[in-house]
Design a binder for these strands. Structure first.
Lengths: 182, 182
DNA sequence: GATTATATATATCAACCTGATATAGATACC
DNA sequence: GGTATCTATATCAGGTTGATATATATAATC
């Protein structure tokens, strides 16, 4: 997804600074996508130059100033056009489309070169890690206000449910079939 | 995973040219990782300079010459060391670790900006796409000789089984819950 | 038999992105 | 008082991708 469209999409959930956009990527979005500061800040500047977002400088007591960006009508139109135009390309990506880049699967691919003991540890820790992830996705308590906008989206509920299902069936498979790696 | 380790790992399954390594990434490995020619060729040159692989120039009738690389003892040792050293880092990556980069999930996140009709089409095509992927992973017939080495690995059977399970439960979830996106 | 498309094979490079680093004010802790 | 951490913006070296170039050979199309 184009970084422009992505930033506009996140700003469509409410006005935000670059720092806060980064926090969304490090929170609930981290499993699906990420952008670095080196991309976010220049993108926001470009979007502002081209009037897709407006910017207000806020001086805060007790914290450094921040630049809060708000999506404009022109920006919303661009975002919708881009989503529509690229939708068909995104159908074939991710979750066994073309973007997984799983280093863990690569490690398993070469499992025969690991000592049995190491392989056992790896599989045990992977199980623990996935159980933690599962708890994260299932967690339904309060979240920092920055992330509440995301939490409120119907689509986020759908995606969290899907993620939960996938992790559960993956854990199940691992427990039943890990013996086959020896 | 370091590109060096990855190339050495693939060469450990048998001697290969850079072009053939790329073909592995475009075949069964494409769902988990990929490297471009711009990375593969320089990596092989570097590995050769440092004696981790040896190289034979083959002139073929009916095809251009190719450079076939073979992993050396020194190369196998390096690969094993690297796998062991980095194993713990790979536990937390991929399949709801930190590397998915799913553009499809992002598209769903902004589903409310798509016309209902487009969203329906997107979900239908996604279902078709995943069913095709499922057939690919389940396919057990003959494969091009380049890819037979991969097919023979026990670990590949494990990973194919896991992928099959994940796609099946994902499809199931989508069919049951797609109404929640409206 | 001429042209076009496609496959094998290697190589390079501009454009882009990340991860690291720099800067800076403020709070918290010991 | 020193140090660590959080908020906040910004820049940049280094690395990767996707596109492009080059070359040979086969197959298809016209």
């Amino acid at each position: 997804m184009q970084k422009d469209t992505l930033c506009l999409g996140l700003l469509s959930l409410g006005p935000r600074s670059g720092y806060e956009i980064k926090q969304m990527f490090e929170g609930p979005l981290s499993d699906f996508y990420s952008l670095s500061f080196g991309t976010i800040y220049p993108t926001l500047n470009k979007l502002q130059d081209e009037k897709y977002v407006s910017c207000k400088q806020l001086s805060q007591s007790k914290k450094p100033d921040k630049k809060v960006y708000t999506i404009t009508k022109k920006g919303k139109d661009l975002m919708k056009d881009n989503l529509l135009g690229d939708a068909s390309a995104y159908i074939r990506s991710g979750n066994f489309g073309d973007q997984i880049k799983s280093e863990f699967f690569l490690l398993l691919l070469f499992a025969k070169y690991l000592p049995q003991e190491t392989l056992d540890t790896v599989l045990n820790e992977r199980t623990l890690f996935l159980r933690q992830k599962l708890e994260q996705f299932k967690y339904d308590g309060p979240v920092p206000s920055d992330l509440q906008a995301l939490r409120n989206e119907k689509s986020v509920a759908f995606i969290r449910g899907l993620a939960t299902t996938l992790i559960e069936s993956g854990l199940n498979y691992m427990e039943k079939n890990r013996g086959k790696l020896n």
